[in-house]
């Protein structure tokens, strides 16, 4: 049973996972112990910190919590985070769609390299991502003199922070679209083409509806990472509160200044955002899997359906 390859239940679908469960038959106590360890780990490293964040935020009462968000510097950090996110997420969404489209639809020189390079930001430390931009656009960087001559400030300013965030969140949209578009194939697009549709019409009427949940998943993941980014941004930001601090940087500043309740208040806002993202992500995953399976079914079914016609 377990070795039987069931094409109608691709990896990630529930039925296949169920049969994998049944295939393993460790003694009961082993299973209980393993599940226990996982749960303990989960509570210790994920559950408790989350509780502590909200507890810390409300330590001085709700009034203090609300007051924290009236503070100019804190409000400004929220604004900075929103600004950076609002630029880098759409940019990466456009890039992600274009990259997934090219990689799954065309065969071209450098395709494999592009596929590998998309993942690069996941492999290197975000700090390196930030440093690269300092090296390129910093005062003593390659482009430094030219930028200074034209009075353009990138490093220690908003453009640098947007660049660094875009670098770190680069892979998410493309990565969530590529497997989906590979599974769906491009026959529907080809059919649309023979019916006289142009490239943009195909994108809008065929491709986007087919990938919308995968795209949504990628975008909110990208968004969550963009809002939470610390390492890369901290390298290229001047870290001036009220000027170039994003929320994560502001949390660090408040914490360093021993303003714990304020630090936790901002942290809780970010955490809340993460929780909302998690809920949306779960929803998207569920919808996306159905879309993925529908795509697979459409590719496989004619040969199966025939017998039951």
């Amino acid at each position: 049973m377990a070795s039987f390859i069931d094409f109608r239940n691709p990896p990630g679908s529930d039925r296949r996972a169920d049969s994998a469960f049944r295939a393993t038959s460790e003694p009961l106590w082993v299973r209980r112990m393993l599940i226990g360890i996982v749960l303990a780990f989960f509570i210790l490293f994920l559950g408790l910190p989350l509780v502590v964040v909200f507890q810390g935020a409300l330590a001085k009462g709700t009034e203090h919590f609300v007051a924290a968000f009236r503070d100019y510097d804190i409000l400004h950090s929220v604004l900075m985070t929103l600004t950076v996110t609002l630029i880098s997420v759409p940019a990466n969404t456009l890039f992600g769609i274009a990259a997934a489209w090219s990689i799954t639809r065309y065969r071209f020189f450098g395709r494999q390299a592009l596929l590998a390079l998309i993942d690069l930001p996941l492999w290197v430390s975000p700090v390196i991502g930030g440093l690269v931009y300092v090296l390129l656009y910093g005062r003593r960087g390659y482009m430094g003199p030219w930028l200074q001559a034209h009075d353009i400030k990138i490093i220690f300013a908003l453009p640098g922070m947007v660049l660094a965030t875009t670098f770190v969140t680069f892979p998410f949209v493309a990565r969530s679209l590529i497997p989906l578009m590979q599974a769906q194939g491009c026959e529907e697009e080809e059919a649309a083409l023979t019916l006289g549709a142009g490239g943009f019409q195909i994108l809008r009427r065929i491709t986007l509806p087919k990938i919308k949940w995968g795209l949504f998943y990628g975008v909110i993941l990208c968004n969550a990472r963009a809002m939470g980014e610390f390492g890369a941004v901290s390298v290229v930001s001047a870290k001036i509160s009220g000027k170039t601090n994003t929320m994560p940087l502001e949390i660090e500043r408040l914490y360093g200044d021993l303003l714990f309740a304020d630090a936790f208040a901002v942290a809780s806002a970010l955490s809340l955002l993460a929780l909302v993202t998690l809920i949306l992500k779960t929803l998207a995953e569920w919808k996306n899997r159905r879309q993925f399976e529908a795509g697979q079914r459409a590719l496989l079914e004619p040969t199966i359906e025939g017998a039951t016609n």
Binding site: E188, A191, T194, L195, G196, P302
Partner: peptide
Amino acid sequence: ANERKAGFVFQSYALFNHMTIFENIAFG
């Protein structure tokens, strides 16, 4: 292909799964 507009019926049909039968036929 979209200039030639040859009517093409694919081996696996390639119907637009997110559209109704009506919209499938109306697409072109």
